[in-house]
Simulated assay, not measured.
Amino acid sequence: MRVLVVAAHPVETSFVSALHGRAVQILRAGGHVVDDCNLYAEAFDPILSRQDRIDYHDTAVNVRNVAPYVRRLQDAEALLFIHPVWNFGFPAILKGFVDRVFVPGIGFGLDQDGKLSPQLTHVKRYGAICTYGASRWTAFLMGDPPRKFMTRGMRGYIPLNKPCTYLACYDMNHTTPERRATFLNKMERGLQSWSSPN
């Protein structure tokens, strides 16, 4: 498969960056073609401008400022997001990527009655690998918005019958080398399964 990996962390020595590098290695070793999109390294502009918002529903022009990223999304057969969870949400650069690239006509269709239809029907599977400073229980009490968006909200873009992998390393505020190694092994097993027939 051609996998678009979208990574979002500003520090190259972070655990998220280590997960990103290892995930790309695993996918390539599994025979996948990886389009490695590091949003910070590519200086992606996450700001949805006034004109972007005015043009948002006009499918003739709404991708003109992000056309290269739209092409990469359209070429992908699988999507993998790798990011930290900050303040129980995505880093701003990743949120901006979704807001600006997954627009009407690309990520979803919107009919005259306001009904949504997924447009990323070419995507065979998708997932996220992320870290949380908080514990799983604290994230649960807060509603765990990133998990809900990935496992539920993304269904507005990707049909329900496509599998989703969500791997989260919680409680990084109390992490240890052993816990990080355990999660890395879990991630490796999870991504190796992407080479299995769907």
Score class of each variant (00 low, 15 high):
residue 159 P to K: 07
residue 48 L to N: 02
residue 113 D to A: 12
residue 152 R to V: 15
residue 101 V to P: 00
residue 173 N to F: 13
residue 79 L to Y: 01
residue 131 T to P: 08
residue 182 T to W: 08
residue 69 Y to M: 09
residue 23 A to W: 13
residue 79 L to C: 02
residue 35 D to R: 08
residue 72 R to T: 01
residue 131 T to C: 10
residue 187 M to K: 12
residue 12 E to Y: 05
residue 151 T to N: 02
residue 60 A to G: 13
residue 140 F to T: 02
residue 68 P to V: 03
residue 4 L to F: 08
residue 156 G to W: 04
residue 3 V to N: 04
residue 135 S to A: 05
residue 32 H to A: 10
residue 150 M to F: 11
residue 50 R to M: 14
residue 34 V to F: 11
residue 21 G to M: 10
residue 125 R to Q: 10
residue 137 W to A: 14
residue 55 D to A: 08
residue 182 T to H: 14
residue 42 E to W: 08
residue 8 A to S: 03
residue 82 I to E: 09
residue 7 A to H: 13
residue 42 E to Y: 04
residue 42 E to R: 15
residue 78 A to D: 10
residue 37 C to Q: 11
residue 95 K to T: 12
residue 149 F to N: 06
residue 60 A to H: 14
residue 42 E to G: 05
residue 20 H to D: 03
residue 92 A to F: 12
residue 138 T to D: 06
residue 64 R to S: 15
residue 66 V to R: 10
residue 160 L to T: 14
residue 30 G to D: 03
residue 34 V to R: 07
residue 193 S to L: 05
residue 23 A to I: 12
residue 20 H to Q: 12
residue 85 V to E: 13
residue 50 R to D: 13
residue 164 C to S: 12
residue 108 F to V: 05
residue 31 G to Q: 00
residue 82 I to G: 06
residue 163 P to T: 00
residue 178 E to Y: 06
residue 1 M to D: 10
residue 103 V to A: 06
residue 101 V to K: 02
residue 102 F to R: 02
residue 8 A to G: 01
residue 184 L to Q: 15
residue 24 V to Y: 08
residue 136 R to V: 10
residue 3 V to E: 09
residue 193 S to K: 13
residue 142 M to V: 03
residue 22 R to T: 05
residue 35 D to N: 05
residue 34 V to D: 04
residue 68 P to H: 11
residue 89 G to D: 15
residue 7 A to I: 04
residue 195 S to K: 08
residue 1 M to W: 09
residue 80 L to N: 13
residue 191 L to V: 01
residue 109 G to T: 00
residue 171 D to S: 14
residue 118 P to S: 08
residue 175 T to Q: 12
residue 182 T to F: 06
residue 152 R to C: 06
residue 193 S to C: 04
residue 1 M to H: 13
residue 64 R to T: 11
residue 74 Q to R: 14
